[in-house]
Design a binder for these strands. Structure first.
Lengths: 366, 366
DNA sequence: TGATCTTGCAGAAACGTACCGTCTGAATGC
DNA sequence: GCATTCAGACGGTACGTTTCTGCAAGATCA
């Protein structure tokens, strides 16, 4: 009670000792608030002299516009959310680490280049955090069917773009994804061309779109070429389970002579398992895994990897989102398919020299 | 004057078709704005019945408080920045990838648990982005001496906590770091105990604190034990340079019989280089590198790594920052040293069995 | 019964900005 | 000399909250 009274009484001076407001700048420059606002934001009709003068005074006073006030007034915060799926309280899994890191890096860059900043918000966050931050739009990674967070955002009119084809009929404004089926078929063909007779798959037990599409493509391929499917599933979010599953796959009586692993750690784990069973790579076992990690360039032998190009996806997703925010883009959903990249290394190189490759005709001469 | 009149006259209906505001809730619930605010925020003196009623009406109208307005009023945004150093336009380097990803993950988690969200803001961002987001505080990773961003933040009264001992006398509120010197000395002793005669170092050319302290510690150790230093430096932010430097180190006439690599990719690159020179690990060459990557558990052979525990650091940094924001902590700078973790694997295990280790006396019995 | 406390709620003042609409004086056109 | 135009600047309001303060009406007490 007295506190407030004292407060007011003891402040006959300026309204703030702390920071200079736009009012202070206006007073110091001898112009109106409007003029200051216009001068600093490059709007209105002002002679350069005035503009310069105001800017100089603002600089001298160390004036920084209040982001909160601006956001309130304009309805734009300059923030976009990056929503990651969570497993057991922890944001993004170990498996998705390299993918996510690269994707986030690219997204951050792209957002920044257009004047936006990125906020990381796990999908399972406490609701109060979500509603406590003013988002101009959100990127959602791999949204699950009827994702409540996405539904709520859309209801509020916040643009949403997803990385990964949205399951069901989630009302996102746009999405970007790889053509996972084509990628898997390409790899299987590549392995078959390298001499594989029985190709195995290391896959996950979860039902996200990536896992589902990839597995289905594998099964289809098997059916087409008349091979019995050989695969092991494991909970991809468990960092230890990969090694166990890799071991199990190579321990089977119908052991495959080539394996494609859907997740990042599968490469090293398969390699370790192969070693335990005395299998040489690529002589006894061809290996490919989906990974963004560069370590596979230096393993013994180097392992062929499929890159999903998370950097390109992150950039594309942010561009689409900002277009939607700024009303540039189309009015109905946009989908964009990104190329994957198969980096062929020793682990999947043709080992049977049955087909005579003429040695003189090396790569490209030059 | 007429404008205002027209304005008011031509809007006899609601003020907004879009979102329900606190006013709408108040009207619908038949109470005042104050009561709504108090009811939803658990403040004031209200009977439970009123509170429930208001909450129910708010829910029914799909009311979401405006984060911007709340921020403007309270001066709290619930946002904390995570500033990363940049190299050539790109946020954080390849080298720091695993470290940063883990640190960011932990920081995100910790922030969230206390009701804050994290904004990623590269240090070299355009200034307008920085001033466009209202931050309650900022975490700075490895701030350079007299970092302009940090100086500006401090000037504005925004709490700053740094990961990594701040260079010079940067006025941060707190910092967290490993004891890099001790870590390096520990590793060198470990290698020496494993029979190393000449230990080499793979280090960086940049002048950040980590590199500097580690290198100095190495040189000191060499002087103490009377070994001639054997090291190669390379620009750590260049993803390709590591391999070249590793090769150079092992190509030297005074080739070391043990190497410690300060950066993440050094392990695989040293391994590859060793292979090229026909050196067996650990028989001919002992290897340790600083890395957060789990791939070193599955290389051939598995490589001993030093973990800086980025997760713990991320958590600690955020805790300190939020304490500072909420005025919980001490008034003067706090520093906190985090333990590092040496994960001993085959690559640095004693290879000469000159010292007879009694096999029965295994680790700790049980 | 009158004085004092407590409860339950409402009014209204900020918070700091952006922008719409308006005003002024000078230059221009006839 | 008067009407017209326009550059240059400004007043005022709204954005949607939180919170300080005030005020009735009932409860408690001497």
């Amino acid at each position: 009670m007295t506190a407030a009274g004292n407060h007011q009484a003891s402040r006959p001076i300026g309204r703030r000792l702390e920071r200079a407001g736009i009012r202070d700048v206006a007073a110091a420059a001898g112009v109106s608030i409007t003029t200051v606002s216009d001068a600093l934001n490059g709007k209105g009709r002002l002679p350069d002299a005035t503009r310069r003068h105001v800017r100089e005074v603002a600089e001298r006073l160390g004036y920084r516009p209040s982001a909160a006030a601006r956001t309130l007034r304009t309805g734009r915060s300059g923030l976009i959310g990056l929503t990651v799926t969570t497993y057991g309280e922890e944001p993004f899994t170990f498996t998705e680490f390299a993918y996510f890191a690269e994707m986030a890096r690219a997204a951050t860059s792209a957002a920044l280049a257009r004047g936006y900043a990125l906020v990381i918000l796990p999908a399972s966050s406490r609701h109060d955090v979500w509603s406590n931050v003013a988002l101009d739009g959100t990127v959602v990674i791999d949204p699950s069917d009827h994702d409540p967070v996405v539904m709520e955002l859309v209801r509020q009119g916040v643009p949403v773009v997803s990385d990964g084809r949205p399951a069901g009929s989630l009302p996102v404004h746009a999405w970007v994804d790889n053509d996972h089926e084509e990628a898997v078929l390409g790899i299987l063909d590549h392995l078959a061309a390298a001499g594989a007779r029985r190709i195995g798959l290391l896959t996950g037990t979860s039902t996200d779109t990536y896992t589902r599409l990839s597995t289905t493509a594998y099964l289809q391929w098997c059916e087409r070429v008349g091979q019995e499917p050989v695969y092991e599933s494991y909970p991809a979010h468990d960092p230890c389970a990969s090694a166990v599953a890799a071991d199990r796959l190579l321990a089977r009586p119908d052991r495959p002579d080539a394996v494609y692993g859907l997740f990042d750690p599968n490469g090293t784990d398969l390699l370790a398992a192969a070693r335990r069973y005395g299998l040489r790579v690529p002589d006894d076992l061809l290996l490919v895994c989906c990974s963004e990690s560069s370590v596979y360039a230096s393993t013994e032998p180097p392992i062929t990897t499929l890159s999903l190009k998370p950097g390109k996806i992150g950039t594309a997703v942010v561009q689409l989102l900002i277009d939607a925010i700024e009303g540039v883009g189309a009015t109905h959903p946009v989908q964009q398919i990104m190329q994957t990249d198969l980096i062929v290394r020793t682990s999947s190189q043709r080992r049977t020299h049955r087909t005579t490759v003429s040695p003189p005709r090396s790569p490209a001469g030059g």
